[in-house]
Design a protein around this nucleic acid. Structure first.
Lengths: 282, 282
DNA sequence: CGTTAAATGTAGTTTTGTTACACAAATACT
DNA sequence: AGTATTTGTGTAACAAAACTACATTTAACG
């Protein structure tokens, strides 16, 4: 368990009387607890100061100040609420931050687990490619489109495709110099896997953005495998596509940096091209 | 400025001698600073304890312990690094977390500033609508597509459109019961604003997801105005569309919750329909 | 060069947290 | 059921940390 508040609330039943009192006061208003001294917290919980101190040590802190520090950190880190699962009875001000927290949490997990050197090697492939195809189906189709909108800036011909037959035909026509970038949350979509294999047999470079150890990642030379926390409930939106989009941002940034300073005016020109379509800023 | 570490590093030149020494020690290893006492920090900075104390107060803390708390929080909160701006010389393990942090940061800002009751009212509109259109151009086109993929589950007819002429025609044909959902980061795209006005004149419900006080938000009855930190550099990817997607997740969740428990089997059925397209989990 | 204001340090005080120990409650064992 | 043992809790003394008032130094300016 990584969140102190969550740890406390799950351990709650196993605590003894005075520890329960302390836990209740802390869970009731963690923010206030980080501000108060051991004396005030003790009196508010109606226990002695050493009891509070023992409570802190039980939860892995070296003492009270250390505990407060850990508590303060856990308040910030994405999951502000003890549980971030949306409940059927939630009102809008309850479920709204939860949805945000789920995405934030997923992003920080991937940020801390992503293989940066693999990112660099995939950037290499993208830079070297003569042509780039982004393939995705379902929700990942929108991700593929977004990737196309981002990568067209680099002068390498790019396109995104959502039609499995089209994908298959393009894969069969592809060869050395072509890069096929396959996006799939599950990594188990049959047609996409077959398409990836087909492209690879023809000598094309095949990259995937997908789940670890999935059939799709095994079918590709370069697999960006992401451990995105699974959606626990039917009615919770997918966080994986958010993570995918950010990874594509990372790759696009990598390519931009590789192109170097002389490339920046080109990007500025593209940005400025939109000015006439907009009302001016006043 | 909201990040303590960033605040310190920008204020660095304006500090006097001993404060500079303290700042240097803290910036060098903030994590260690949160662990140490005022005495150790003073000796490590080669200044007196009161100097450290004064340093803390200068940065808005009530004293040293409060300062440590704030410092600890700022270490967690997304922006782990003093500067999160991508530099041209960054290697993959430097720019990768920065991109993630930018998105995380944007999400937490919007999480803390979004108007939950407005969310609830927009959900009302979405539930009541006879038909929903998602409009977006450029990057927001992909967001609109994603929204369509999400909202089709609710049995209300939905579509997304990226063609300004098509958008205009649909708006002119729309009326009471139709909901037009306009997505734009800038809120200044002329055609989209005109389309929104047109739809409104015809009695349709018009909702926007856009920048605060923009022409687009003024043209709509319901405006979800988001303060997303602007992209500072040309070569940095947009964080706004990530935020937009999450807001649409929030709205979709709101609609789902409104539909109630009896609606969940319907969602499960849709999810299961994809099974035959995938290789089984082993 | 002297005056003044700002910056920094010293020493003492207060607050805060910790430890050792004693008492009480609960549990286990005869 | 009664005693022993363990576990839990509080009291009080102690130690450490942070803060304040004041003294000293340093720099700035006339």
């Amino acid at each position: 368990m990584e969140n102190l508040l969550a740890t406390i609330s799950t351990a709650l039943p196993n605590l003894n009387k005075s520890e329960k009192k302390v836990a209740a006061v802390i869970l009731d208003d963690p923010e206030a607890s980080t501000q108060s001294s051991i004396a005030t917290l003790a009196s508010r919980s109606k226990v002695s100061e050493p009891s509070v101190n023992r409570f802190c040590k039980r939860f892995g802190a070296s003492g009270f100040p250390d505990f407060k520090l850990k508590l303060a950190k856990s308040l910030v880190s994405g999951v502000r609420y003890v549980s971030s699962a949306v409940e059927l009875e939630d009102t809008s001000d309850e479920f709204t931050p939860k949805i945000f927290n789920n995405s934030i949490h997923a992003l920080s997990l991937v940020r801390d687990s992503i293989n940066a050197s693999l990112v660099a090697r995939v950037v290499d492939q993208l830079v070297q490619a003569r042509r780039i195809y982004f393939f995705g189906l379902g929700t990942s189709a929108a991700v593929a489109t977004d990737a196309e909108y981002k990568f067209f800036r680099f002068n390498t011909p790019v396109s995104s495709h959502h039609d499995p037959l089209m994908q298959r035909m393009l894969a069969s026509a592809g060869g050395v110099g072509d890069l096929f970038f396959c996006i799939s949350h599950t990594g188990r979509t049959k047609t996409l896997i077959e398409t990836a294999q087909l492209a690879r047999e023809n000598g094309a470079t095949v990259v995937s953005l997908t789940a670890p150890n999935s059939p799709l990642s095994q079918a590709c030379q370069w697999a960006l495998e992401l451990d995105v926390p699974e959606d626990t409930d039917e009615y919770l939106p997918m966080t994986s596509r958010i993570v995918h989009l950010v990874v594509l941002d990372v790759l696009a940034t990598g390519v931009t940096l590789r192109k170097g300073e002389e490339f920046l005016p080109h990007l500025a020109r593209i940005k400025n091209s939109l000015k006439p379509t907009r009302f001016s800023q006043d």
